[in-house]
Nucleic acid binder design. Structure first.
Lengths: 269, 269
DNA sequence: AAGTGGTCTAGACCACCTA
DNA sequence: AGGTGGTCTAGACCACTTT
C-alpha cells in the first residue's frame, strides 16, 4: 500500500513509553507513537467489547484488515496475534479468526502478589528457624532420589514483610558437602539471591505445584494465624544441570497475603 | 540470503503435523517439514539446556543468527520470540537477548486437570442440590451490586465424575425474571453448555480467584471428604455486556482431584 | 476455485544501550 | 559510533477449509 506523498513517519522501533491519549476511535495513525499493530489490536479489542464483533463471530481476514487500515499484512497479522495471545480470539487455519467465548477453564493464575512482596526487599527479613541433618522425612527422600540411609538437610525459615510474618519456608536437599546447592541453602547472603531475586542460579529446571493446605499448630504459630486456617502451599522440586532432582521444598503463605486472580473475557482498559 | 540454485523447498505454510525425527543436531534444514523458526528455536533451546548458552549469558544477536543459519531476520526473530514466550529467554532492547535464570515467582498455573475432567462429559453427572430465593447472603449481595432487600437466587450443584463426587458448586445471581442468565442457571440442559463447554455465552468478562479453603461438615459430606479437609475454591464473578456484575459463584474441589502444576526452566522434551 | 491463516524473504528505519 | 532489539514493508508460496 502506497503512502500518500513521501511523508516521513516520525518514529519506528520502540516508541517512548507513552500511552495513547484515549478517546480515539478512528483508524491506524502512523504519525502516532503507538505502534501500528498495537493501535489495530486495541481497535479490534474495542469492537469485540462492544459486540461489533460478537462472541463466536469471525473477524475480517488479516488481508482485509491490512488493506482496510493501510498496513502491511505482517503488521495486521501481528495485531491479531496480540489478541490471540490474550486469548480473546482464536485462529483457525484455512477458516478464519473467531471471537472466543469466555473460557473459564483455560485461564491461568500468576503469582503476581507473591512476587510483589518478595521484590520489596527493603521491607523483608528472613529468620532461620531450624537447620538440621535429618534421616527422617521419607516423602522428600523419594522425590530427591536419596537412599534410605542417606542424610538430608532440612532448613526452615520464616520470612517477614514489614515486620509481619509472611511465609514459612521448608527446604530439603542431600547432605553432600561438595554440593554448591547445600552451601547456597545455608548461606544467608546467597539466600537473598536464591529466592528473592526471583531466579535460581545453579538449577536447570523445576516443577512447582500449588496445593491447598491447613496450617498445623506450629506453622500457624510462625505465621500468626489460627491452627486449622487454610493456606497455600507452593511446593518446589528443582533439578540441577545433570537433570537430577537436587532440592525440594515449599512455601506456606496465609491466604489474604497472596491472591491468585485471573481475568477472563474482554477487559478494555 | 540467496538460495543455492533454484531448489524448490517442499512446503511452506503449515506443515503436516509431524515432529522432527530427533537425534538431529545440525543447522536449519529447509527441506524439512518442521518450520525453520521452530528448528532454530529447538536448536537454541538445546544449547541453553546443555549450557552452551549458560544462564545469564547473551544469545547471539538476531542478525547473527539469521546469517549463521541462512534464514531471514524476521524468521530468526520469530525463533527467539518462541523462547521468549516460553520464558526461557529475556529480550532487552538495545542490549541483547539473555538466557533467563529460573524464575520461580513468575510462573503461572493452569487449570488443565479441572478442564480435563469437565471435558469428559460422558462420565459426568450433575445433581441440583438446592435452588432457593434468599434474602440473606450479604457477601454475594455486595459483589453483585444488589440492594439490601433485593432477593438473590442461590443454586447449589454437586458434580460427579465416574460416580465419584468431584466438585460442589454454588452460584448466585439477581432474581430478575427477565434475565436470560437466571434461566441459564436453572436450566440443566443449558447448564452443560454453561460450564462444561468451557465457555460462557452471554458474559463479557469475569474475574476468577483461586483461594485455599477448609471444607465444613456439609461440604465435606457432599464431596465424600472429612470435615476440616483442605480444598481449592475457585471463585467467579462474571459481568454481562453492560459491564454489570451478573453472577457470582464458586467451585469447591478436593485436592488430589485437581492439581495445579507448573514447570519452570528448560525442559527439552 | 477462492479465501484464510502459517510461514518466509530481504530489505528498511528507529530507539535504546554500551562502549 | 556501532550493535541490538522493535517495528514495518510488500510482496511470496503453502496447507487448509469452505464454497
Amino acid at each position: 500500500m502506497k503512502e500518500e506523498g513521501s511523508v516521513k513517519r516520525p518514529a519506528r522501533g520502540r516508541r517512548p513509553a507513552e500511552e495513547a491519549p484515549g478517546g480515539w476511535t478512528g483508524k491506524v495513525d502512523k504519525q502516532s507513537w503507538v505502534p501500528a499493530y498495537a493501535q489495530l489490536a486495541r481497535l479490534l479489542r474495542r469492537r469485540i467489547a462492544d459486540e461489533t464483533y460478537a462472541p463466536g463471530s469471525r473477524l475480517p481476514s488479516e488481508a482485509t484488515l491490512a488493506k482496510g487500515f493501510g498496513v502491511s499484512p505482517m503488521t495486521a497479522r501481528q495485531a491479531v496475534g496480540v489478541l490471540s495471545e490474550e486469548g480473546i480470539v482464536h485462529r483457525v487455519q484455512g477458516s478464519g479468526t473467531f471471537v472466543r467465548r469466555i473460557e473459564v477453564l483455560k485461564t491461568h493464575f500468576a503469582l503476581d502478589t507473591l512476587h510483589a512482596v518478595l521484590a520489596d526487599q527493603e521491607n523483608l527479613d528472613v529468620k532461620l528457624e531450624r537447620a538440621v541433618v535429618e534421616r527422617v522425612p521419607s516423602g522428600a527422600r523419594a522425590l530427591l532420589g536419596a537412599g534410605d540411609g542417606e542424610p538430608l538437610v532440612v532448613v526452615e525459615r520464616l520470612i517477614r514483610h514489614r515486620g509481619e510474618p509472611f511465609a514459612f519456608q521448608t527446604a530439603c536437599t542431600r547432605f553432600d558437602p561438595e554440593s554448591p546447592i547445600l552451601e547456597k541453602m545455608l548461606n544467608t547472603a546467597v539466600l537473598t539471591e536464591f529466592f528473592f531475586e526471583a531466579h535460581l542460579p545453579g538449577f536447570k529446571k523445576g516443577v512447582l505445584e500449588l496445593v491447598p493446605a491447613v496450617l498445623d499448630g506450629r506453622e500457624a504459630g510462625f505465621l500468626g494465624e489460627q491452627a486449622g486456617c487454610p493456606a497455600f502451599r507452593l511446593e518446589q522440586l528443582l533439578y540441577d544441570f545433570g537433570d537430577r532432582p537436587a532440592a525440594f521444598g515449599w512455601f506456606l503463605v496465609s491466604p489474604g497475603k497472596v491472591r491468585l486472580v485471573s481475568r477472563v473475557g474482554v477487559w478494555d482498559d
